[in-house]
């Protein structure tokens, strides 16, 4: 049953998932520099980048799947507004996080 509708769920899910890197960015600084800092500073780059990279890549992948499934399994009349409403903003947010991650890694 869920499989039949998964393409409708994935779009909003992709957009909702973009809150995950935001939450990570909100929480991570306090782990290293907060009043109750619990992690050593020398691990900051490795741990933060791992977290950011995983979340931004997952977010981007989710966007790809959502957009592809919507376009192939729904009629255009339904697919285009859903892609515009959910996937395009999700892609944009994911692109911001991915760009930041690649910039921090000095890859771009």
């Amino acid at each position: 049953m869920i499989r039949r509708y998964e393409h409708f769920i994935l779009g909003p899910l992709a957009l909702l998932f973009q809150a995950a890197p935001t939450a990570f960015i909100y929480l991570a600084p306090n782990l290293f520099y907060g009043v109750d800092a619990s992690l050593p500073e020398h691990l900051l780059w490795m741990m933060s980048m791992t977290g950011l990279a995983i979340l931004s890549l997952l977010g981007m992948t989710l966007c790809y799947f959502a957009s592809y499934l919507l376009l192939t399994r729904s009629r255009r009349l339904v697919a285009f507004p859903m892609v515009a409403l959910f996937c395009a903003p999700a892609f944009l947010i994911a692109a911001i996080y991915l760009t930041a991650t690649l910039m921090f890694m000095t890859w771009i």
Binding site: C63, Y68, L71, T72, R75, R76, A79, V83, A88, F91
Partner: peptide, 19 residues
């Protein structure tokens, strides 16, 4: 056109273009 499904190849292209 509004009732058509998109071909897999075209959907893939649109998705990559969007990204």
């Amino acid at each position: 056109a509004g009732l058509r499904y998109m071909s897999r190849r075209r959907a893939l292209a649109v998705t990559f273009m969007l990204a």
